[in-house]
Amino acid sequence: MNLKKWTLLYILIPLFLLVSIFSFNFIIDPYSITPYNILNIPNKFARDDR
């Protein structure tokens, strides 16, 4: 792997992962913080032991 490609990947991979994780949290959000809950996870289930 050449250095330029390595460096670019090094910056893009964490960015991609972070954006995915945060947007994933946002749209399946079972805690009703956002208006979305696309997988329809029931609130009670997610908050069970809190």
Partner: peptide
């Protein structure tokens, strides 16, 4: 060495 291993470990720690 700038290879797949360091890329994987580094980005894992960073993320």
């Amino acid at each position: 060495q700038f290879n797949k291993l360091t890329l994987f470990v580094g980005t894992l720690m960073l993320t």
